[in-house]
Design a protein around this nucleic acid. Structure first.
Lengths: 210, 210
DNA sequence: TAGATTGTTAATCGATTAACAATC
DNA sequence: TAGATTGTTAATCGATTAACAATC
């Protein structure tokens, strides 16, 4: 559904408004700000129930909470991170998983010089202990920041360990790659593709040139 | 157009096939691999001209080159990077801009301890010299890996310096934020949103639960 | 020639926009 | 009450799928 893909963006804007102390917003105003039509916004929100009030608009705090709850941000999911290279390190150091519905409970790598070190209070563990950890703690998702070459095998391993979601940074479509296996284990894959994003930008500045 | 958003993904798959030594592929086979319909693939490619041959399929090398050229991957664009924090560093160290149509010509930061150091042969420069550099070298795009708080002002500055595109990692929609200004300068913004991606995953594993 | 597979048209499906009555 | 703005239906638009003739 196309609405779902817009929900995170709605949440982001509402979160900004909320933190800016704005109490109410109309579909018209929000539409201007987000570069959408007011009609679409009302249609979208009504897919999940009527959160607004005629003549008034939407209560920012309430709407934010509702959308957050539709997204499942309050489900107390847990996450582990595999591969503390540059991107893994960047996420560990800067990304606040808590603001997006997850608690990061462990990070793993193979490099001896990394194992035992801490980033933001989290100690890097040896991947050798991954299976035991997962059997014990059953994390909901794994953040895959390993080299592309080992991504598929690590994905299968995590799938068999019962992980329910993979946030994949390996620049490869894991869902199409491991089709049967992933489906069997009911693992949801979210692929992050820097290269797709940059190629899109390349196309768009090119198209503007003439 | 919806096709355009699929082009980078087509390119990625064709690039993989090409490097795997595959010479030809039919819409049917590519559809299976990419989890699309054969009909859609043929429809998509025909938007840009007939690249196939009846009874044979598509020549992988040729199709890859055509899509690359539609995307503008051969336009010899130049890029600079602003903000060598964790994400900036990760991109400098790992991302091969050359494979996606860009040559990275400079990286900037404000931290004295970073300035003058090298990453992958590229010396980090002082942001103080940004204006002179841009006037001299006129880079096509800037990779914005600065903290969210300084992103809007840096974006305007770059826009005024004549940059044509921004690849923005600041978790903020710069295009809607700086509407008039960006439009005036005709700057194309591509926003990368880790948080949107993670929230989408959160929604999807939640929806599967019941 | 026979088989395969494209290019392309027509049919279907879904998503967006417009309009307006309901109602705060 | 009058004004504002939602919820919701109907109309439009665009994108996807199905079908098949063209042709390698």
């Amino acid at each position: 559904m196309a609405v779902v893909r817009r929900l995170p963006r709605y949440y982001r804007y509402l979160d900004d408004l909320y933190h800016a102390g704005v109490l109410r917003i109309s579909s018209k105003l929000l539409a201007e700000r987000m570069d959408l039509t007011a009609s679409q916004i009302r249609q979208d929100f009504n897919n999940f129930g009527g959160f607004g009030q005629q003549g008034y608009g939407y209560n920012v705090e309430h709407l934010r909470r509702e959308i957050g709850s539709i997204l499942g941000l309050n489900n107390n999911h847990t996450a582990i991170l595999i591969g503390v290279g540059n991107i893994g390190h960047a996420l560990l150091a800067n990304f606040t998983f808590e603001r997006h519905g997850f608690t990061l409970t462990a990070a793993f790598d193979t490099k001896p010089e990394l194992i035992g070190t801490q980033i933001r209070g989290l100690t890097i563990l040896d991947v050798a202990g991954l299976d035991d950890f997962c059997k014990d703690k059953t994390p909901d998702i794994a953040v895959l920041t390993v080299p592309r070459s080992v991504a598929p095998s690590m994905a299968s391993r995590l799938a068999l360990l019962g992980v329910r979601g993979l946030w994949n940074f390996a620049n490869i479509d894991l869902d199409t790659q491991l089709h049967g296996e992933m489906a069997r284990q009911k693992v949801t894959v979210e692929n992050v593709h820097f290269s797709d994003s940059l190629m899109t930008l390349c196309y768009r500045i090119g198209a503007k040139k003439d």
